[in-house]
Each structure stands twice: as C-alpha cells, then as structure tokens.
C-alpha cells in the first residue's frame, strides 16, 4: 500500500529540530513545561501516589477497623490470591466478558461508523447524536435500566419476547450464569458501542478517497474495496479502538454490581477488589488484588501493542 508518504516527511523534520535548538524553541519548550507541569504534577499526585500506596499496603495484613494490629507480611497476600480459585474464576469471567463485548462492539461499531460516514450531510449531525446517546448515559443508570427491563417482577422483556423459544413469562434472567452474563454483556455493548464507532469513524475518514476511486476504476466490488482497501488502511485505528475498549471492558464493575451483585458466578476482578477492600475492609488483601488487576491490565496492554504492533502515536494506517 502506498502509505509511506507521510513517513519521510515526519522524519525530515525531526533531525533538523534536534540538531539546532534555537532560543525560540528552547523558550517554547519551557513554556510547554510551564503549561503542562501543573497538570503533570496533579496527575502524579492522583494516580502515582495511590498506586504506590496500594503497592505498599499490599505487603501488610491490615484491616481498616483494626489499624493497631497492622503487620508486615511480605508477599503473603499475593500468595493467598493467586492460589485461590475465586481469583482465577474472576479472571475467566472478566476475560469472557471482554472478548464477547469487544468482538460484538467492533462489528456493530464498524457498521455504525459506516452509516455515520455515508449518511447524507443533512442528517449526519442528528445521526451522530442519536448514536452517541447511550455513551452519554451513566453506567449505573444504564445498568439499572437493563436490570429493570429483564427483571422477573418489573421487566417487560419476558412478555415482549415470549414468542422466542426458551423465553417464557417465568424466565429468570439473573437466575443463572449464562443468562445473567448475556444481559450484562448486552448492557455493556449497548453502552460502549458508540465509543468504538467514534474511534472507527476517525479511522474511516482517513482512508484516502483516491484509493477508493482507484479500486473502483479497477472494478473492485464493495466487499473487495472493504477488505483490500478500507480495513488495511485503518488498521491502526481499529487496533487503538480494540485496545482502549479491551482495557475498559476488563475493569467492568458497575453493571455487575447493580444487576447481580456478583451472584451466579458473575464476579469480575474489579468486583473482587471491591469486596476485599470495601466490604471486608481488608486493606492489605484488597490492595494486593488491585495491584494484580493493575498488572494484568498492563500485561494486556503491552501484549496488544507488541502482538499487533499498534503505534499509539500514529494516526494513520501502518505498513
């Protein structure tokens, strides 16, 4: 693919700037630091400090209601977590939710992005707003809405869809693992597909029209243009979308907290952190769980970037 146009251009500027730093560029850099510095400091304070504190606490046997008996236990908390089937089950459930929701969202989001791109100019803004509305809804609110819809007592789903085999007036959606997970995934997909479609729209808009035209002139069908031109040219955008959403999906908490409260084996890793830290008040064990969650997310992130060679700084498709 002829995607090399901007590479030399970018490369041509850099050495020149690096070699001769003028007074102007130095003062600009200082201004840059002055402007970004406070935000950087605040970020350090609100993210680095709690992360380090969690790391520190995770090495202790520390109960919030019994601070006087706090004792250093080294890596014991990590041992407890990693040898507990509950942890591995939570990892499995979390991964399952992540894979299902991200896969479905990618397909749906791509379709929505295509619709947004190709819609008539007149209705485009309205369409974008309509598609974005679910994303503007607070997750807890959307979780309650979906829960009420599927609830045996208050829900309408059973009476509307009882023509579908397997759904009756008495279907208890939150009564077993599979159906509860289905509703949780549905709520997540409804809520975050707009996010993924927005990222994909940005990628779609960057596929050069000339390439599409050239393919059309060569007699390529719609499907061929899609698979040979459009998708390869927006690979980076797709990867960024998948990466962001996967990290987001891996931290799923609100929907599960509202809909099942962790019942029917639907506990995720974030939920375990909540239960150890907030319900059990075991700050040590809870911190260790959250550190492990953090490490898992980092591994996921690095794995993604290495495996798919995603370059986050690159807006265009790579080669």
């Amino acid at each position: 693919m002829s995607q090399t146009i901007d590479r030399p251009a970018a490369g041509a500027v850099e050495p020149a700037a690096r070699g001769t730093e003028t007074d102007k560029s130095r003062s600009e850099r200082r201004l840059g630091w002055l402007l970004a510095g406070p935000a950087f400091g605040v970020m350090l304070l609100v993210t680095a400090y709690p992360i380090l504190q969690a790391l520190w606490y995770s090495l202790f046997d520390y109960r919030l209601t019994d601070p006087s008996n706090r004792s250093f236990t080294g890596l014991t908390n990590y041992g407890v977590i990693l040898t507990d089937a509950v942890w591995w089950n939570a990892i499995f459930v979390t991964l399952l939710i992540t894979v299902i929701t991200v896969a479905v969202e990618l397909v749906l989001g791509f379709a929505l992005a295509l619709v947004m791109l190709q819609a008539l100019k007149a209705i485009r803004p309205v369409l974008r707003i309509v598609i974005l509305i679910p994303y503007a809804v607070i997750t807890v609110v959307s979780a309650f809405a979906w829960q009420f819809a599927f609830d045996l007592e208050s829900g309408f789903v059973n009476s509307w869809f009882n023509w579908i085999p397997g759904i009756t007036e008495n279907t208890a959606w939150f009564g077993d693992f599979g159906s509860a997970l289905f509703v949780i995934c549905l709520a997540e997909i409804w809520k975050t597909t707009p996010f993924i479609s927005l990222l994909l729209l940005a990628g779609l808009a960057q596929v050069p029209d000339v390439l599409q035209e050239a393919a059309r002139v060569d007699g390529a069908s719609w499907w061929q243009r899609m698979t040979r031109v459009t998708i390869p040219n927006m690979k980076a955008a797709i990867m960024v979308a998948v990466l962001f959403r996967s990290l987001d999906a891996f931290r799923v908490f609100d929907s599960i907290f509202v809909m099942t409260g962790g019942a029917q084996g639907t506990e995720t890793v974030s939920f375990l952190v909540y239960r150890q830290t907030i319900s059990r008040l075991e700050i040590g064990l809870g911190s260790a769980t959250s550190v492990l969650l953090f490490i898992t997310v980092v591994i996921l992130c690095v794995g993604f970037i290495k495996l798919f060679r995603v370059d986050l700084s690159q807006a265009r498709g790579g080669n």
Binding site: L152, E153, N170, A172, F174, D176
Partner: peptide
C-alpha cells in the same frame, strides 16, 4: 417459584 434465586423481600411481598 421461578425467580427464587433473585427473590428479595419486595419480590416476596409482590
């Protein structure tokens, strides 16, 4: 009853 595994006090009352 069918929804027993999610039945709380309110659902019982209803």
């Amino acid at each position: 009853g069918p929804g027993f595994s999610t039945q709380d006090e309110d659902a019982t009352a209803s």
